[in-house]
Simulated assay, not measured.
Amino acid sequence: MENRTPPFYFNLTMFVNIRHYRLVAFTFCVLLYSFIVSANLLLILVITQHRALHQPMYMFIALLSLNSLYGSTGFFPRFLMDLLADVHLIPYPACFIQIYVIYTYSCNDLTILSVMAYDRYVAVCHPLHYYRKITPKTVVVLSVLAWIFPALLVASVISASAQLSLCGNEIQKIFCANWNVIKLSCVSIDVINILGMIVTITTIFFPLSYVVYSYLRIFLVCWKQTAEFKGKVLQTCLPHLVSFIVHCVTGFCDIALSRFQLEEKNPLAAVILSLEFVVIPPVLNPLVYALNLPDIRRHKHKVSK
């Protein structure tokens, strides 16, 4: 009699490609997760403890680090358990919770980066009106919206996906992803495709477009200014720009992986690419901001002593 996986579970099939390296991968990922947690917590601690850093730009940086902790915690504990397990089954509810956390983490990053782009745009292009436009109330409102807006939109897509009748339970990935679940559907997915397109446009393309627009305006203002002015703008904008580019590249790799079925051609490359957007931004963000912003670097040394 053929054994069947209980329908209450999904089977994450991509772990078979790293079974020979799982102890090495587990050790490396534990160290990586420890670094992500400690580096982002340190950055948040530095910003919250020093009144000199209680400015909009630094508060948004702390929000970005908080989101990195949120996304990493939603991914790494389960991933580390699966690395050591012989069977990689995940219950339906846990799978959809993981999808929700990972997708909201990614969308939150983009909305926070777009809010930070607005902050830099006002600071560079309208410096005399900065403290009138970027008030403490504005910072709170923008921060809340940056979290709530993606949360509601992602919840709508995942709720629709959870209602689908599925004809299989195998997910070709090392974590649950919405598109991989949708591909298992036995019924039409036209409505979900339309809903997913709306969510993609509002949570990805709108923020991306605004960040590009903001930096075009900043570039035009800097074009006519002195070298000293350009240096100051570069010092504050470069970390944000690096974070934005890294998020775009890693996000594109994950989308390409889902659509072009790389796991069938090069499974190991598929595993590595699927990890990029949940690993690289949380690792890189605290390094970029701590090393490039002198105010954070100076106060970080005080906390570390």
Rank of each mutant, 00 (worst) to 15 (best):
Y118W: 03
N193R: 04
Y33W: 13
V46E: 00
P294I: 00
Q172F: 15
T202D: 09
G196M: 03
M1C: 12
S304K: 10
L31C: 05
V141T: 11
C176G: 06
P281I: 08
A25T: 06
K173Y: 15
F206Y: 05
L164W: 03
K265R: 11
V288C: 08
L53D: 01
K302F: 07
E228F: 09
S159C: 13
Q55K: 09
K302L: 13
P239N: 01
S34V: 07
F244W: 03
A270T: 04
S243K: 03
H129S: 15
A25D: 07
S258N: 04
H129D: 15
L273H: 03
F219D: 14
L220G: 11
M116Q: 01
E276P: 06
L113E: 09
F229N: 00
L64C: 12
H301K: 14
L64F: 10
Q55S: 11
G71V: 09
K265D: 13
S143H: 03
V140E: 04
A85N: 03
G71N: 07
P93Q: 10
I218A: 10
P150S: 07
T27A: 00
P286R: 01
N178S: 11
Q235P: 11
F15D: 02
C107N: 15
G168M: 03
F219W: 14
S143L: 11
Y70C: 11
N40W: 02
L241M: 14
I158M: 02
V199F: 11
C95A: 12
P77Q: 07
L32V: 10
Y58W: 02
Y9V: 13
V233F: 04
I134P: 03
I255V: 12
V30S: 01
Y100C: 12
E228I: 14
V303L: 07
C222P: 06
V233T: 04
K300C: 14
F8E: 15
C248T: 08
V303E: 05
G251A: 00
L113K: 01
L64T: 10
A25Q: 02
R22H: 06
Y215D: 05
W179C: 13
S72T: 07
R217C: 13
F175H: 08
L43M: 02
S304W: 12
T111S: 06
P136L: 05
V283A: 05
M1Y: 13
